[in-house]
Structures are given as structure tokens and as C-alpha cells.
Design a protein around this nucleic acid. Sequence first.
RNA 1: GCGUCUGUAGCUCAGUGGAUAGAGCAGUGGCCUCCGGAGCCGCGUGCGGAGGUUCGAUUCCUCUCAGACGCACCA
Length: 593
Amino acid sequence: MEKILDLITAEMSKAFAACGYDESYARVVLSNRPDLCEYQCNGAMAAAKAYKKRPFDIASEVVTKLQGSREQSPLFSLIEAAMPGFINLRLNGEFLAGYLNGMSREEKLGLEEPGRGETIIVDYGGANVAKPLHVGHLRSAVIGESVKRMGSFLGYHMIGDVHLGDWGLQMGLIIEELRDRKPDLVYFDESYTGEYPQEPPFTIGELEEIYPAASKKSKEDGNFKERAQTATFKLQNGYKPFHAIWEHIMAVSLADLKKNYDRLDVHFELWKGESDAEAYIPWLIEDLQKKGLAYESQGALVVDITQESDSKELPPCIIRKSDGAALYATSDLGTILEREKLYSPRKYIYITDKRQELHFIQVFRVAKMAGYIKEETPMVHIGFGTMNGKDGKPFKTRDGGIMRLEHLIADIDEAVYNRIRENRTMTDEEAEKTAKIVGLAALKYGDLSNQAAKDYIFDLERFSSFEGNTGPYILYTIVRIKSILKKYQEASGGQAVSGEILEAAGDTEKMLMLELANYNEVLENAFAETAPHKLCQYIYDLANAFNGFYRDNKILAQQDKTRQAGWIHLIILAKDVLSVCIHLLGFDAPEQM
RNA sequence: GCGUCUGUAGCUCAGUGGAUAGAGCAGUGGCCUCCGGAGCCGCGUGCGGAGGUUCGAUUCCUCUCAGACGCACCA
């Protein structure tokens, strides 16, 4: 269905044109003065200068024209000009009810699919294998999942790639640490020629402990660091024993990562990693040299990326270290080559920590300069901020360590569980299951309701609270609607509801209806701006609008059965819109809570 | 030093080239013959600072202050 703002703007454009003004002034927006009107057009004030007239005269002229055409197209119940030149509008109630009935009937609640199957790659910027997921990985997973769900819903072909960090120096570090710990393993016996064992030489628990230990050691011990670099280089050049270790690391880590992402209800189409770019790198380096982009500088191979529009010179992009090894940028460029070959996406979205911004500027520019990606293909880096503790510093456990994601989730679930037990009578088992659903909503909504680019304060108590602008409050509203519907069904003997949504009789009823009518506009906009927090804002407003309506209208006690059926249809639509939106944010509602 | 991002209410956060800048929390007062009160309705304080562009700036530009982050061989 066409968006309501577009319908109104089209009407306004006709009036502006009929009065001899440019249609570009006719844009209609949501009112910022709900006491005066529902929609407004501010174009008359902008037009005043161009046409050398008083803004109010232009507004009045357009208003008169609109009122004249109201007979043919009764979109508005109020059209008026206000000083200094606003055009204020209220929507015709019958038209609004008709619009909502249209939404109810249509698939996806009347949302059109601007995506038309175009492919978009979402890159989650690499959880490292061999490291437990920690809170730093939460944001990319949660934001990415939401962006992906929104895109799919809007008709894009979204391909999410977890894009693991599985090929860098950390692999060499692990290998050398393993050598120090278990020097007798056959992988370190250079004379060994047999097959390597199927069984991994470590458990996930050991692995998670090995990496931080190795990382620490490399900072203190230059010799160890060199060994790790050598091992990395050997691995990248196909040295068999190390490749065998690498496969063990991958197998053990992947199983664990999948478990954790599943728990977040986060899923990937591709489980690729930096290692998959390896095959493209020799060609890449040669090609960049051939094109005259890459040159040697201080022993490394670099590409200048500074453009004329830059006020300052940017550091060049290093694509090969002086020791010959590839690195971050090389692998991201190699990955781009692969993606172009396999998927030729129309757009790229990278979701990583905002500290990596410079890196992505470099990679994007090299990719375009070298012609790997068309100039017009959008490459977006969504750099998200740090998740801080209540002290405003990066989130840590109580004893100052890095918080593991699974512990964080467990903490939230526990907080929610206790809250649920306070009130409702539910079995332990039910409460536990419900707590997981509500806990996930608390966690994701708490994150997504903030602008991605900003740092935010993670406050477990606040996020898991059932009051205020929280995930649980949204779920509560949905559950409440479900409960009313259930009672209505019982009272009516389970018959299908007849009738349809009627013109609003009261203020809060109309506000709810107006809020619902914004749905497709909000959703398209939230995706276009890759801004899930706008969807959060919307469902919070919608939940509030519903609760206001609920207060003023006793639905189940309504004697007028036609009116009652209309309300039932209205709250079904409200429930559906809320449900769709939270699903696009990455969580769902329970039956009761 | 250079660059990027961020400064909005006591706290946590929205927001917009337009009319009176909004929520939540905390504080405080009210609403149940109660469809889920986990709700609803009141009560008050703010756009870091200074210029500029504009009919109009919290929004755009410049400068400035404060914080976070980044600045070639980590990812």
C-alpha cells in the first residue's frame, strides 16, 4: 500500500501545482503540534521567498484549492492555514479506517517491497575463533540481525556473513602457545609424515584459555611474538601440520560459536572468514601493482587512498607487510573479490566497532579505485559505539575481567525470571522458558533502542525492568492484547470476528489509528537509515497509544457489537504491527508473562 | 600534533531548518463495582560556549571548551 504521507503529499502537490507553485514545496510531514493538527506542510514559508509573496497568502491559497477538491477526494477533515504560513491537516476518519482495513487484509500489513530481490551483503566483522564471545560481539550480532531482518522483510535478498577472524596473527599465537604447552604433539614433529589425528588436541575450554595467555605473552616476549608471526606466515602458506591444527581450532570454535549465536537468535547465511579470502590475495596484490596503485614503502606494500576532497592526508592502506604476510585490509579486499564473483551485491553493509572506521574508509576506497566495486555501489560502515558499564567505562565483570556473552545473557534471564516469579502463577518450567524470551527482548531492545553510533550504558536493572521504555514493556502490551482477544474469543464461542475497523469515535482511538498508519513509512525509513532505534521508538509510541486507547474504551464490556467488532479488529492490527516490528528487531513475544 | 565521533532534564536516552524541544527512570500527588495496575493521568528543570547563514537554528557553517576513539606493517 502506498504510504499515507505519500498519499497526502500527492494531494498537496496537486494543490500547489494548481496554484502555480512548484510541487517540491508540497511535502507533508507528521505534525509536531498534535494539539493543532495531525499532519502539516511547511512549504508555503519556503516558497514565500521564491515567489515574493507572504507565506500566509500562499498557504491560504493552497488551502482554498484543497478545500475545493475535497468533494472528489475526501482525505481530510481539517485543512487550514495558520500563521506565519503553516498548512495544518487532519485526516478524514473514514479514510483512515479504510486505510487500516486495507492493512489488515494485506500480506505484510500493506508493506510494499522496495527491495525487489536486490542482494545486500551484511558483514558482521569477525568474531575471532578461539575466543569466547564477549559483550563486544553483542552489538554487531544484534544490530546486524535486525538490519538483516528488516531488509529481508522489505524484499531485499540479505546475505549475512559472520566473517570470522580465522586467519590472522592470533592463529600463530595459538599454535606457538600450544607448542609451549604440548611440545610432544605430532604437529610439531617436523619428521612426522603420517596422517594427523582426527581428535582435536584441546577442548573449547582450553582453547579459550590459550589465546589470552598467548596474547599476553607476545606483548611481553618479543621472541615469542616473532615465533607467532613465523607460524602465521607458515600457516598462510599452506604448511600442513599447522593447517591441521587450524582445522581443529575451527571445528572446536565453530560449534561453540553457533551455540552462542543460536541462543541470541542470530543466524548467518555464510560462515566465511578471513581464510576464505586467501585464494584471492596473490591475484589481488599483483593486480593492484599492475594498476599502479600499490607500491613499496618502508618495505611494505601500500596503496595511497587520499583524495582531493580530503583536507588532510590519510594514512595509506597497507596490503602486504614487510615480512610478506597479508593482513586485515588484504583479507577484506580479497573477500570483496569473492563476493563480487559469487553474489555481485548491490550494496555492502559492514557492522563493526566504530574504531575501525579508518580501516573501512581505506578498504572501500581501494576497492573502488581498483574497480572491484562499481562507483555507485553503496558501501556502508555502521560503526557502533562501546557498551559501557554504569561507571561509563567499557563493560567489565565485577572483578574487572571481560564479560562473556553467555554470562551476560544468564544474568539478564535471572533478573527477568525473578521478576516473573513475583507476580504470576506460573510453574518454574514455564517461568524459566518465559524468562528466556523476555530476557532476550530486554537485552536486544536495550541495545537497539540506542543510536548505534553512540556509546551506551548497559544497565541490566533498567533493561530488564518491566516499566518504561524497555523490551519487556513492549512485550507486556502485546501479551495484554492477546489476553483480551482470548477472552473475546471465549465469550463469542470461538466464532470468527465479523465486521471491520470503524471510524474512530474518540481521541485516543484515533491516535492509535494514526500511529498504526505510520507503520510502513517508519519501517522503510528505519532500514534506509540502518537505524533500528527508530523502529524501537515507533513501537514504544505505538504501545503507549494502545494503552491510552485501552484506558478509554472498555472493549469487552462494549454493548454495541458492531463497534466492539471494530475494536477487536483494531487491536488485532495493533498486535500484528507490534509483533512484526519486534520480530524485525530480533525477538518475539510469549503467550503470557 | 592531526583526524573522526559525541556533548539535550538530577540520571539514561529520543528528536527536528519551523509553531510550546520530548520520553523513561528517580521524586511527588491521583485513578481500581479493576478487558492483565507490569497500566493510566498530573506536578519541573535542559539543547556545553561564542559567532555566522536564514523570515526562522537545538538542527547547517566557523571558532572554542569538554569527553571518547583513531592515526602503516594487530584484527
